[in-house]
């Protein structure tokens, strides 16, 4: 959620989420049915699990994800009030030892990353060899993606939506292989919400 650092002359993405933390978080109450459809589409975590860009902890709480990081302190305070274990950290510099997690999640976060490649490289480092990364997106060419990108929302204005194929290519470049894809209709089309599961490609991965 709140990732991707400074844009010269503009508010940083973390600033936007800090300023509008409560408004962002209340979306999930206002759209409870949509949130529910997303939750049931996401493959459940294997322990120990990490969410990068955990925001206010909505998905952590529902899915039972163990540890979350985000750049927005205000969103993390809300996550903590939900009982989530969270840290302020940059996805490009994760504060964890190598091979710490069995599963990792990027849920509606990729679109806010300024440098997704380096975040994927860090996730690869902290995942065990048999670990699974799940990336959940609203594709640019889905009904929901088109609705969101046409909205003049302070959040979507700073987001960059990808096509499913682009995310697959990004994952392969980062040393993952896509092992499964779940798609669901949230509002408009069968690919409104897509979860790609990926495993680390090859053993003895470079550090």
């Amino acid at each position: 959620m709140a990732y991707g650092i400074e844009m010269p002359g503009h508010e940083s993405i973390a600033d936007v989420f800090n300023r509008l933390a409560e408004r962002y978080d209340s979306w999930y109450d206002r759209n409870a049915e949509l949130f529910e459809r997303e939750v049931i589409t996401i493959p459940p975590p294997t322990k120990p699990s990490l969410e990068v860009g955990c925001g206010s902890g909505r998905f952590m709480e529902r899915l039972g994800i163990d540890v979350g990081v985000d750049l927005s302190e205000r969103l993390l305070k809300i996550a903590r009030s939900r009982g989530c274990e969270v840290l302020i950290a940059d996805g490009r510099l994760l504060p964890f030892r190598d091979d710490s997690f069995s599963s990792a999640y990027l849920i509606f976060t990729l679109c806010f990353l300024q440098n997704p490649e380096s975040v994927l490289a860090e996730i690869r480092r902290v995942l065990r060899d048999d670990g699974v990364l799940t990336v959940c997106i609203v594709p640019r060419d889905s009904g929901l993606g088109m609705e969101y990108s046409s909205k003049n929302s302070p959040f979507y204005r700073i987001a960059r939506f990808y096509r499913e194929r682009e995310v697959e290519e990004m994952l392969i470049k980062a040393g993952f292989e896509v092992t499964g894809t779940e798609r669901t209709r949230i509002r408009h089309s069968e690919n409104d919400f897509v979860c790609l599961s990926a495993r680390l490609r090859g053993k003895g991965r470079p550090r």
């Binding site: 650092i5 940083s12 800090n18 750049l71 302190e73 305070k77 940059d90 510099l93």
Partner: peptide
Amino acid sequence: ENGIPNMLPPELREKV
């Protein structure tokens, strides 16, 4: 602070 570790490198702490 408040139960939340701030694991940002010092030069990034002020920016976010």
